[in-house]
Amino acid sequence: MLHYKTHVIAEDAPWVVFVHGAGGSSSIWFLQIKEFVKHFNVLLVDLRGHGRSKQITTSKEERRYNFEVVTRDVIEVLDALQIQRAHFIGISLGTILIRNLSELAPERVQSMIMGGAIIRLNVRAKVLVAIGNFFKSLVPYMWLYTFFAWIIMPKARHRKSRVMFVNEAKKVAQKEFMRWFTLTYELNPLLKYFEEKDTGIPTLYLMGEEDYMFLPAVEYIVSHHTNSYLQVISNSGHVCNIDQPHEFNSRAIDFLRNISARSLPQNVEAVPQLVAI
């Protein structure tokens, strides 16, 4: 089972589950915990091969991971803790796992908050994936990860989040990194399916205005899916929970408290004004 940590404030308090991205760990949420535990029970998980989660494999899984396998790891933790329903917050690739969880077990998902959401791969992202697949066996994986971090988070104010993710990635074994990289082969058909299917689950997208690779696709999807909302955070890049933690926390908590009260937030527009980046 995945390594996890809980913060319980009350038995009847709603649960919030944090899911990090590839190469990270639950430690990337350190700027969120203090605020969220004022209102919610919190569950943090380390995905397989990340943080303090030991490698979880069977003979078949050892050869290649897929999104269903790594998503069911999270469901296994929910089952162990007897958490029947929760709010889910993800960043980057973690948003794909949450969206996949909403397909595998929709009854477990009360709402979703997608930070730096990956909805569609633009041309630049597809080129990065192709470069990674070509060079992954030829160069040290940290060279690739550092290169990707610079492309996705290029500005000086992204340095904190960029350095943190690179440092976390150094803790992931190269073989484990390669297994996770195989997930890129599933991305395009899976993301296309997610774009075409509207879950109707209340979903807030929190995106940095400088997340130039992924923000345009999110702007499109919130105009086509019901119960989907977008808030754009100024002076922030892809990892907006680290770049602008106060804004991320306040917007996410307001959304969740309104969902928990069975009402939609009044300060979130269903079709947002586009932001020039």
Rank of each mutant, 00 (worst) to 15 (best):
residue 225 H to S: 03
residue 262 R to P: 01
residue 34 K to R: 08
residue 227 N to F: 05
residue 240 C to Q: 12
residue 261 A to V: 04
residue 27 S to M: 07
residue 40 F to I: 07
residue 33 I to T: 13
residue 226 T to R: 14
residue 47 L to T: 01
residue 115 G to D: 11
residue 11 E to N: 15
residue 212 Y to N: 09
residue 108 R to N: 05
residue 58 T to R: 08
residue 274 L to I: 06
residue 131 I to E: 13
residue 84 Q to Y: 06
residue 79 D to E: 14
residue 263 S to F: 10
residue 29 W to M: 03
residue 128 L to A: 12
residue 80 A to W: 06
residue 171 K to L: 10
residue 57 T to P: 02
residue 9 I to G: 10
residue 267 N to I: 04
residue 74 V to C: 08
residue 57 T to L: 13
residue 93 L to S: 14
residue 143 W to Y: 08
residue 16 V to A: 14
residue 24 G to M: 15
residue 222 V to N: 03
residue 167 N to S: 08
residue 47 L to C: 08
residue 51 G to H: 12
residue 109 V to Y: 06
residue 30 F to V: 04
residue 1 M to P: 11
residue 211 D to E: 07
residue 260 S to W: 08
residue 268 V to W: 09
residue 27 S to V: 12
residue 122 N to V: 11
residue 40 F to R: 07
residue 2 L to G: 02
residue 194 F to N: 01
residue 68 E to A: 04
residue 92 S to F: 08
residue 89 I to K: 05
residue 38 K to V: 00
residue 191 L to E: 00
residue 160 K to P: 00
residue 110 Q to H: 09
residue 274 L to M: 07
residue 251 R to D: 00
residue 146 T to Y: 10
residue 19 V to Q: 10
residue 242 I to Y: 06
residue 34 K to M: 04
residue 13 A to R: 15
residue 27 S to C: 02
residue 135 F to E: 03
residue 104 L to M: 05
residue 80 A to F: 05
residue 97 L to N: 12
residue 103 E to F: 13
residue 110 Q to M: 12
residue 252 A to Y: 06
residue 19 V to G: 07
residue 189 P to W: 07
residue 262 R to Y: 10
residue 17 V to T: 05
residue 273 Q to W: 01
residue 109 V to N: 09
residue 86 A to F: 12
residue 251 R to E: 00
residue 59 S to F: 07
residue 200 G to Q: 01
residue 181 F to M: 15
residue 43 L to N: 00
residue 214 F to C: 13
residue 193 Y to V: 02
residue 215 L to E: 02
residue 262 R to D: 11
residue 4 Y to T: 04
residue 187 L to P: 05
residue 205 Y to D: 02
residue 239 V to P: 07
residue 245 P to Y: 05
residue 159 R to W: 14
residue 93 L to P: 00
residue 246 H to R: 15
residue 186 E to L: 06
residue 171 K to P: 04
residue 243 D to G: 05
residue 1 M to L: 07
residue 262 R to K: 14
residue 73 D to P: 08
residue 128 L to K: 07
residue 60 K to E: 10
residue 40 F to Y: 15
residue 63 R to H: 14
residue 106 P to C: 08
residue 252 A to G: 11
residue 79 D to I: 03
residue 250 S to N: 07
residue 42 V to T: 01
residue 229 Y to M: 13
residue 171 K to D: 03
residue 230 L to S: 02
residue 209 E to R: 13
residue 204 L to P: 04
residue 73 D to F: 08
residue 231 Q to W: 10
residue 179 R to N: 15
residue 157 R to H: 15
residue 245 P to D: 02
residue 229 Y to N: 07
residue 15 W to H: 12
residue 239 V to L: 15
residue 201 I to F: 01
residue 127 V to P: 05
residue 127 V to R: 13
residue 27 S to T: 11
residue 44 L to E: 02
residue 216 P to F: 03
residue 247 E to P: 01
residue 122 N to C: 14
residue 160 K to L: 14
